[in-house]
Design a binder for these strands. Sequence first.
DNA 1: TAAAAATACTCCATAGGTATTTTAT
DNA 2: ATAAAATACCTATGGAGTATTTTTA
Lengths: 301, 301
Amino acid sequence: MTLQQLETFCLVVEQKSFGRAAECLYMAQSSVSQQIAALERHYGVALFTRIGRHFTVTPEGRVLYEIAKGILVTLNAIPARMKAVDNPDKGRLRIGASSTVSTYLLPSLLRRFKDRYPYVDLTVKTDYGYKIIDAIREGDIDLALVGHNLNWLADPSLRSRAVARDQLSLIVWPGHEWCGRKLIEPRDLLHGYVFIHSRPDSGMRSVVDKFLLQENLVFDAVLEMANHESIKLAVEEKIGIALISSVAIRHEMATGRLAEVPLNRLNTIDRRFLLVSRADEELNAAEKAFVALVENDAALQ
Amino acid sequence: MTLQQLETFCLVVEQKSFGRAAECLYMAQSSVSQQIAALERHYGVALFTRIGRHFTVTPEGRVLYEIAKGILVTLNAIPARMKAVDNPDKGRLRIGASSTVSTYLLPSLLRRFKDRYPYVDLTVKTDYGYKIIDAIREGDIDLALVGHNLNWLADPSLRSRAVARDQLSLIVWPGHEWCGRKLIEPRDLLHGYVFIHSRPDSGMRSVVDKFLLQENLVFDAVLEMANHESIKLAVEEKIGIALISSVAIRHEMATGRLAEVPLNRLNTIDRRFLLVSRADEELNAAEKAFVALVENDAALQ
DNA sequence: TAAAAATACTCCATAGGTATTTTAT
DNA sequence: ATAAAATACCTATGGAGTATTTTTA
């Protein structure tokens, strides 16, 4: 079955005549007959009921007509859609983000992006990092902004660029004895404080664990909370102390609800956010514009 | 551009290799190269960026891939959709109806239809009769149930079948002096009563006007209401009398809120409901089942 | 009898194959 | 050196045309 046949068939339906369809297509009437016959052979059904030199469309023909017409219209729209891809003002941008990114980084990025390119068809998916990366692999989204992960960096089917350093911060409540101290030593963390952890399968947890292992720190009292907001609240309530993404505490630092304390060697832990896309697909103009925005974002340097 | 080319292109994208795509299609690698080259020539853009013996998909290629994939999936679904048309349990039924029909006839018809064929994809459009017929002509709906109209019966592009006689009824309020009278003469209508009309562009109005003209009746006092419900309320409130579709007063007759009075020669006015479809398209199984239901409906005889 | 579609038959354009070249790893 | 895609060239299938037949209004 060919597109030519579908086009001819649609025209026959619309013109209600083989001959007129042939004229429209600048071809012989016999060719139209042959194409319709070929379609009917292909599907094994009559598309028209011939009544003398007259015909009606069968229900099967109606089905084919509606589908074929839609396909032809879609095909005609392809050149326009192709032109749109190198225009960041008209293109499409499907972003995926881990919940940390989605909560603390995306809002300002998306606001600025929408200001500059208000007509971009923009969708955002928020999920666990590994699910976002799966969606990238499936082609359901085109660009992911997630926490660093060696598995993804090593995957040749993905293209990753590190865009921002995510510092860890040691946070305590305001008025804590460490506030104002020049430098806390890691072993000081063990002196009687509850340590508040994030979920074991979160990207941040592995980074924190890495630091604790490196410093040989084992806590007597540990608390595990579901998300950043719970951790911050627990610290505020003087339940314990925590290591947390710097980006997640900007607001609390500004309002003085939490305090950050300098911890020795914490800066040896270098976590980064990654912009991930498929290695076998190139970025369109809208996606490139978003990458440029992220890379030039002073707040993320 | 051919469907073959689109299929080959999709396979190259999925397999990330011209050679493997050729294997899947049981054809030579050179043919795949030629088909891709033809597509690129046709659209005047590169679909792949060749990097040595490696390649990536361009943004234009991504656009084409998504569209082409959708088309191929749609095409594959055609045989199943064709089989569904001669199965009233799985087909599609798009009905249009004038507001009278929609209010007083359709509810019971649709309930019974849905009982028998619960999986039919059923949509109903309600509008003025002429707009429903326009939708039939456009192919937006497949079957219309509307009031009689000579223009539509004469149109060769439409197929109409009269399915039910819509009687006119003379209605008055209960306790009116005419209640119980054997037969009212048309000229009696003029004796001091307000006559309540429907909208001038409604199908029923032209029927009522025809009768009034035939009987040479010209009222001193006339009231015009937007719809059947308003007319019935006005009669109930003893504001006036009216000629109205019998189907529209079934409920009020049953509950005694209105009274019908026999009017001489009113039965000479013969209005019918029409089932209208396109003359150049045959009914599918679901549509035939609905037609059968309407034709066998005792309430509509 | 005229108008429209189907059929028979011919021809050539082009899609696909084979063989080879190019290119990058 | 090898693996993969592009290119050149050839062949044959099938699509379009011409001419004719069939059908019914």
